[in-house]
Design a protein around this nucleic acid. Structure first.
Lengths: 122, 122
DNA sequence: ATTATTATCAGTAATAATTACTATTAATAA
DNA sequence: TTATTAATAGTAATTATTACTGATAATAAT
């Protein structure tokens, strides 16, 4: 009845994304999965990453005009180095309280901090 | 000595962006400014918006694969409706405290909340 | 003012990222 | 097994953005 099918491609994409702590682009996921599955198509990777993120199985962020994907959907923010592009996860010890307006139904919060990493700070 | 020049194009772009509370794309800014300045070029709009945001004269956000610009650089977050694309400013009454790692030098914080607006909530 | 310098511009071409298309394949149902 | 059709590989098309180039105009120098 569930017209969604399990495929080797989907499994491989998810497995790779969950195996890394980075935030790869579709292109990077493609290159990595291609090693095990040489004729997977880039379109397949794009389609499934988009589908996964729509279903909240993975996270998605947009940095410098590129979409990036995150295998970790636990609540966390990101640090982005504006110079070298480094992306790092930010886990917060204390809960952050936000007094957002009641008129919206919230689905997710995305907290991104921009700056310089140690290496790029001068 | 300052090799940056004041131009009518720059002034018009800034003036438009500061006159609206929306978060227009470069394309939208272009269309608007074009009304007063019919042969301004799209490239000029892109170049200057990018330059302004680099110099922190305006804000920039990335939503659904598009860059959007914000004439308001006061500290605030954004709500984005995942269905209709509405972008709304979020001003917080209480200061938000974040315990981010010391290893980074912070330049800016971007807080985006995703969900459904009243109209799109079913 | 007039002229010189060159940042910026308009217009267009090129690139990069992503999405759409289509015949084929393979996951699930019958 | 066989039938059904979602998903795929491969490729073409689209969209957003950036790069290029000769002309223009903002500022500096005379």
């Amino acid at each position: 009845m569930s017209d969604i099918r399990q495929t080797k491609q989907k499994a491989a994409i998810l497995e790779y994304l969950r195996s890394v702590k980075t935030h790869p682009t579709a292109e990077i996921v493609y290159s990595a999965v291609k090693k095990e599955m040489p004729n997977i198509s880039l379109g397949t990777v794009y389609r499934n990453l988009e589908e996964f993120s729509k279903n909240e199985i993975i996270g998605k962020l947009e940095v410098a005009g590129r979409k990036r994907f995150d295998g970790d959907i636990s609540v966390h923010g990101h640090f982005i180095c504006e110079k070298c592009g480094l992306i790092d996860d930010l886990f917060f010890k204390k809960k952050i309280k936000i007094d957002f307006p009641k008129k919206y139904s919230i689905n997710g919060i995305d907290l991104t901090i921009k700056g310089r990493c140690k290496k790029c700070e001068k």
